[in-house]
Amino acid sequence: MKMIALWLGIGAVILLGAYIRLAPSDPAKWHVAPVGEQNRDLEGGAIRVVETGPDGLAKLDAIARDTPRTSVLAGSVDEGMITYITRTNVIGFPDYTTAQQDGDTLRIYARLRFGRSDFGVNRARVEGWLALLQP
């Protein structure tokens, strides 16, 4: 009986891991404009509003694309808004970061998909990107 429970537990963990890695990312849900006029730290993410000049999104795009395990979900520099998916190394949890250029202002909204807390991972990633954005 214990062996069956063990195998069922292992199977459940494998299925959960497969779901986390393979669950589709709907651009209609995740590629949304960041809202806010000030920086905010959230339990599962962060919002940053910075003055970058009109080319902030293009510079951030180069930095984000150079980040390991990060890809574009939707958008482009030409559209003025891009949403990235960054996955954790081991399990592959997806985090979504949307950046939008509004004149000289760059708005960034980073958030998790699964769970309630990201332990500051999204905030740290965005802060790292912004540090690289500085001249």
Results as ranks from 00 to 15, higher is better:
I82T: 14
P27F: 05
G115I: 01
A131H: 08
A131E: 12
I14P: 10
L73M: 10
I47M: 09
L112S: 06
L106N: 07
V121H: 05
D95C: 00
D66N: 13
G9W: 15
E79P: 04
G120R: 00
N122K: 01
I108T: 10
A62F: 04
A99R: 10
N89T: 11
Q38K: 11
R87I: 02
Q134K: 11
G36F: 00
A18T: 11
V77T: 03
L133H: 05
G53R: 08
V90H: 14
G75V: 13
L22M: 00
P54R: 15
R107M: 12
R111C: 06
A28F: 06
G53E: 03
P24D: 14
L112N: 01
L106T: 03
G80K: 08
R87T: 08
I47H: 09
A62M: 06
A33Y: 03
A5N: 09
W30G: 04
Y19Q: 04
I47E: 11
I63M: 08
F93H: 10
T97Q: 04
A18P: 05
N122F: 00
Q101F: 12
E127S: 07
R125I: 00
Q38D: 13
I47Y: 06
L42E: 04
G115T: 05
R87F: 01
D104Q: 00
L133I: 03
Q101A: 14
M81S: 10
L112H: 02
W7H: 14
L8Q: 05
Y96W: 14
K2W: 14
L22T: 01
L16M: 12
T97A: 09
F119C: 02
A62N: 06
G53A: 05
A12R: 05
L22R: 07
L57R: 15
V90K: 15
L6C: 14
G53M: 05
Q100K: 15
K29E: 08
Q100S: 13
T98V: 04
T105W: 10
L130C: 02
R69G: 01
R40H: 04
A18V: 10
L22G: 03
Y109H: 14
V121Y: 08
V13Q: 15
S76C: 09
R113G: 08
V50K: 08
V35E: 14
L73N: 07
I20P: 09
R113L: 04
M3P: 02
T86N: 12
I91P: 11
Y19S: 04
W7P: 08
A28W: 07
I82M: 12
I4W: 08
R125C: 05
A18L: 13
A62Q: 07
R111M: 08
I85G: 06
W129A: 07
G44F: 03
E79M: 15
N122S: 10
V49R: 11
H31P: 00
G115L: 03
L73V: 01
L130Y: 02
L15H: 07
A46T: 07
D61F: 01
A64Y: 02
R107D: 12
A99V: 06
I10C: 12
I10L: 15
L8R: 09
M81P: 09
M3T: 15
L8P: 03
V77G: 02
S25K: 07
D66Y: 10
G17T: 09
P54N: 15
A28I: 05
I20H: 13
A74R: 03
E37F: 02
K2C: 11
V77S: 01
V90P: 10
